[in-house]
Design a protein around this nucleic acid. Sequence first.
RNA 1: GCCCCUGUAGCUCAAUUGGCGGAGCAGUCGAUUUGUAAUCGACAGGUUAGGGGUUCGAAUCCCCUCUGGGGCUCCA
Length: 587
Amino acid sequence: MLDHGTLEAGHVNALETLRHRMRHSAAHVMADAVLKLFPEAKMGIGPPTQDGFYYDFEVSRPFTPEDLERIEALMRETIAGNLPFLREEIGRPEAKSMFAHQSYKLEIMEGIAEATTLSVYRHGEFADLCQGPHVGNTGDIPAVKLLSVAGAYWRGDEHRPMLQRIYGTAFETQQALDDHLARLAEAERRDHRTLGKQLGLFSIHDEIGPGLIVWHPKGGLVRSCVEDYWRQLHLRRGYNLVYSPHIGRAQLWQTSGHLDFYRESMYAALEVDEQEYFLKPMNCPFHIMIYRSSLRSYRELPLRLGELGTVYRYERSGVLHGLMRVRGFTQDDAHIFCRPDQVLDEVGGVLELTFELLRTFGFSDYSINLSTRPEKYVGDLAIWEHATESLRQALVSRGLPYEVDEGGGAFYGPKIDIKIKDALGRAWQCTTVQFDFNLPERFDLTYQDASGGRSRPYMVHRAILGSLERFLGVLIEHYAGAFPLWLAPVQAVVIPIADRHLEYAASVKAKLQEKGFRVEVDDRGERMNQKIRQAQMQKVPYMLVVGDAEIGGGAVSVRLREGQNLGAMPLDALAERMAGELKASGA
RNA sequence: GCCCCUGUAGCUCAAUUGGCGGAGCAGUCGAUUUGUAAUCGACAGGUUAGGGGUUCGAAUCCCCUCUGGGGCUCCA
């Protein structure tokens, strides 16, 4: 098992290395083509990426789709020419004169230590400052395609010039490229924004404002199923469910530090009775007030306060994206207040809760990040150490693989982030478990310890789904809109064949509804085929055809959205089957 | 916020490049009563995102604002 895994990893790495080189080389070939067509272009950087490559250029006008075609055509010529990639080490003075007109390259050189030998890679007439490595010849880029153009700041800094970035991808075979393009098309087909419209789940309106979601009855149903499950799971895991308001006084946000450090993400103050109030960007201060509402004993810790809390954050207009990035969203938030000796168990409990929940939704692919203390931080070193070790141990003791992001923690504490991958392998950050050494200090949180003294509790901030909006966006794409039975807004559609079957159809609906199922009757004056098509497109799990044959035996003819026709079965048998399916889902 | 692209009926898209804004689906009405992915017909549906400008004439060209999209930066 282990050997097999290692072997596989080896293959994967070899392929990744090959693609990495090939794409890096493709970026050079592209830059070559761009310089031929736009001799004045200044080159930025052109690295390979996860799925392809890009190269940034400063040009007098942005690239058009037609430019991309011309560039791609020139690239094909270069590739057909099968020119060798040649590495050459050069001295600094030479390099400086070689790239005298390439100011960005000169800037890159300045960033490279004097002791480092500079190298350039050439193919044909083209040369680029580059460490390599590359493929042997331009012909070793079997399949390449340019995809898009976008603006990108030089060095990612919004105060520096904006360059024009061309994205492309390259693969070892045309087939692999086609497969990749097919994956992109599949991703588009599953886009939650498209499915949200088609399935009537949610919408966003000019009249309401960007980044603000309204959930329609069907989307609302899915969401409430998720919420109901979330609540019962949290109650089962010893959480207390609380509610808090959407606004709070300026003083609260002053104490929490949000007004000093988070203001650019907060909306302008509201004036109420000559007092300033702010719309909440986070739930923590409210939960803290609940903690502070009484003197806490070490005996009542850990105290876990959970809330589906809706927060509002100002997000720059360019970053909004469907349900994934919005301005008003509901966090499945909780704050755990505990003693030092409870930290490890609490973190472990959060992880177990997380994986139980992710399993229920069918996510088995995820990546975990442990982020440690940054340069600037608050709190004692010893406490940071303890907290970070607890996070690490909780992961290790469960055999969970993780990557360490050294110094990637927040200034107020270390954290674990979990990104879940959807059916197409795209990663979305949802879960976050963060220690907070700042707020307990600011709000002077204490508990009476066993020795009669006052101690400061640890505070852990955690969200499992992250935000309901984002999570539902991920879910929609994960299931491609075909929700499992327990989440399906309409679990069954009864399809009467002719008007004379309407009465029986209504009784089928009533009986199933009686048992708690969500059922509709398609009573339009349409043909059965049309009704089936409609239910099929709405991704309804069960289609129940009723006609003369069924009425006699108190039966329904069952068709699944996967296409199988199960034939006639007694209504009770169907109800049993559906109930069994619900039970098996674990929700 | 920045760069580029975009906005036409509820939805998906046309409109010969400046010359009377159409179609399919959805909707309403009528006919049909059908056995596992689209029955037929009629009707209705629009200040072409909003505002300004050029022109005899603007969906089309120009300017401003707003939305949406692909990125950059940032993030649940």
